[in-house]
Amino acid sequence: MSSFLAQTRARVPRLADAVAQQRARLSVVRRPEQRAPRVPFAALVLAVLGIGLVGLLVLNTTLQHQAFYANSLEQRADGLAERKQSLEIGVDALRAPGRVAREADRLGMVPNSSPAFLFLADGTVRGTPAPADPQHALPLDTSD
């Protein structure tokens, strides 16, 4: 470490000597003609900036657009869920046993009080079939 420092210190005067020598011989120096062209570089920087800007803009717009789209889809889903729900409520009301019983009653039907089964395989009847008895009509009221 210390030897390295010593070396540098030793080299500095030598460099100074060289500069002095150069100064001593003055001459007209032509401006170097071959300078890096500015236009491509500027264009590159502008292009990077431009693309970045446009990209950001596009990204932002897309995200916003998607947010709006998602929002509108959500609203649509909500609307459809509402519709599904109200249809289900309707179906439940229509298939409720009370409603079916009322409709059957309106058609003059009564519950069968003598269960009997016809077996198609051998044509036998099990149980004692009998015409339904109007006495077995289930009394329903308006709230059923």
């Binding site: 519950p111 069968n112 009080s113 269960p115 099990r126 149980g127 077995h136």
Partner: peptide, 18 residues
């Protein structure tokens, strides 16, 4: 008993045992 049991037997398809 008769009415409710008859209803259940029909609903669940339980024939007389014979």
């Amino acid at each position: 008993f008769h009415d409710i049991t008859s209803y259940a037997l029909q609903k669940y398809g339980v024939p007389p045992t014979g």
